[in-house]
Amino acid sequence: MSLKQFISDQSRRMAARSPWIYRINAGSCNGCDVECATTALIPRYDVERLGCQYCGSPRHADIVLVTGPLTARVKDSVLRVFDEVPDPKVTVAVGVCPISGGIFRDGYAVLAPLSKYIPVDVNVPGCAPRPQAIIEGIAQAIEIWRQRL
């Protein structure tokens, strides 16, 4: 193994320990957002130990958490914000809403599933999912992200 190979392996291993998270609310009822924002961040479920950090700007993000069934109203904004996230990035769909529309699936303004519009890498089902499930989803997203780096 050459030195160059070694350095690139090591730097990839290090970089994979710093996934920054950004949340997009695509018309969620806020249940999933509460689970993401507060529960997954309170001391008991600290995601910072995985190196994660919630960031305010999509441009700093590596892992994008999307909640909600993608309503027609927010579709353009969601796609625009998603494009602002620099590559390489991983998408995690949180809740059943982005998978199928959940309890809103019959709504006239609901465009779910989300995967028709943006590439979803990990699905975390549940209405709303438990914090442990969200952390598990983030951990899987980190694995995928490591390969993309």
């Binding site: 710093s18 996934p19 910072e48 590559d87």
Partner: peptide, 24 residues
């Protein structure tokens, strides 16, 4: 805050990560 917290080298990891991302 009674959390576990990130590893000590976290700022270094962040830097290496940022070096590998795209600048927009």
């Amino acid at each position: 805050q009674r959390r576990v917290g990130p590893p000590l080298a976290q700022p270094l990891y962040d830097l290496v990560k940022l070096a590998k991302k795209r600048t927009m």
